[in-house]
Every structure is written in C-alpha cells, then in structure tokens.
Computed example of a mutant assay.
Amino acid sequence: MSARRPGTEVPWDLSFLRVGALVTGAVAVVAALVAGLIAGWADAAGVLVGAAVVTAFFVVSGVVIAWAGRIDDTFTLPAALGTFFVKAVVLFGILNALPEDGWLDRRTMAWSVIVGALLWSGIQLRWVWTRPLYYVTPPPPPGQGSLPPAPDGTATRG
C-alpha cells in the first residue's frame, strides 16, 4: 500500500461538480418545458427527477472518490466501483418503486438519466482536457519562492 508522505498531499479538485450541476440544471429546465408542452407534465416531471438523480449520483461519486483519494490513491478504484454498485442498486429500487401510471413518466425519467449521465461524462471529459495536470509539483513562479543559494551558500537576489 502506498501511503502518502507528509507534505505531498495533492488537493482533490471537485470544481467540475458546480459546472455539471449548473449545466444539467439549465438543460433540464429547457427539456422539462419542451417535454411538458409536447408530451405532458408527467414527462416534464420525469425529466426533472431524472436530472436530479443523475446530479446527486455524480456528486456522491465525486465526493466519495475524492475522500478515498485523500486517504490513499489505491482506495480510489474500489471507492468508485463500490459507489457505482450502490448507485445502480438505488436507481433500480427507485425505478421499481415508482407506480407505472404515477405522477411522472418512468420511461422519460430513465431516458433523462441516460442523457444526463452522457452530459455529465462530457462535462467531466472537457474539465479534465482543459486543466493543466502535472505529473510532478511545478516549481513556484519566479519571485514567489525561496531564493536559490549562491555558490558560496548565501541567498542571492535576482
């Protein structure tokens, strides 16, 4: 097991959760209005509930994986797989608990979950592709770090 050395902890950035929630919220509102006008308000409710389920699932996954990664990097894969399994069981339970002719359309909700998962995946991909990810910690910018030692061992000014 690879325990972290003191001072080498890299913070886990969860800023994609805010972006994902905002984009999903905007898309869900528009989709719910369109679905409500075209197919009925049960479909609009299905869109909104599906978007809320997907957002909650991605937030839970992000927080759990970041928590596991803060403990040790080797815990992130088991945390991700375990969280995925729990979320799949919860989603199955939610879909089965809903009445067939209830206040929301289950099929629309299921399609909203699929579309929402693809949307969140795209958001995460773009987030990763547009971030500078370093293999090693970069040096501090000039003028913000410690002064390099001179050949005689004293600090120099640049």
Score class of each variant (00 low, 15 high):
Ile71His: 03
Ile38Gln: 14
Ala39Met: 12
Ala79Gln: 07
Gly62Asn: 03
Pro11Arg: 05
Pro141His: 02
Pro138Ile: 09
Thr8Arg: 07
Asp43Val: 10
Asp73Ile: 03
Val47Ile: 15
Trp67Asp: 11
Phe58Glu: 08
Val113His: 01
Leu22Glu: 04
Pro139His: 07
Met1Lys: 03
Ala28Met: 09
Thr74Cys: 02
Leu14Thr: 10
Thr154Phe: 01
Ile94Lys: 00
Ala31His: 05
Gly40Arg: 11
Val60Phe: 14
Ala51Asn: 05
Leu119Glu: 06
Pro138Met: 12
Val49Gly: 01
Val60Trp: 15
Val54Asn: 00
Leu95Ser: 04
Pro132Tyr: 10
Arg157Ser: 12
Leu48Thr: 09
Arg70Asp: 13
Trp120Met: 13
Arg157Met: 10
Gly153Met: 03
Ala44Leu: 08
Trp12Cys: 08
Pro6Gly: 04
Pro140Cys: 08
Asp101Ile: 00
Ala150Arg: 05
Asp105Ile: 03
Ala52Ser: 14
Pro138Glu: 09
Gly69Lys: 01
Gly36Asp: 07
Ala3Trp: 10
Pro141Ser: 13
Val10Thr: 14
Gly122Thr: 11
Ala56Leu: 14
Pro139Met: 10
Leu37Met: 07
Thr76Asn: 03
Pro140Leu: 15
Gly20Glu: 05
Val10Ala: 13
Ala88Leu: 15
Val23Leu: 14
Ala155Thr: 04
Asp101Phe: 08
Arg5Lys: 13
Thr8Val: 09
Thr156Met: 07
Asp72Asn: 13
Ala117Asp: 11
Gly36Glu: 06
Ala56Ile: 11
Gly36Ile: 08
Gln144Asn: 04
Pro148Glu: 02
Gly20Lys: 09
Ala28Asn: 04
Leu17Arg: 03
Ala155Met: 12
Thr74Asn: 10
Lys87Phe: 00
Val34Tyr: 08
Ala79Asn: 07
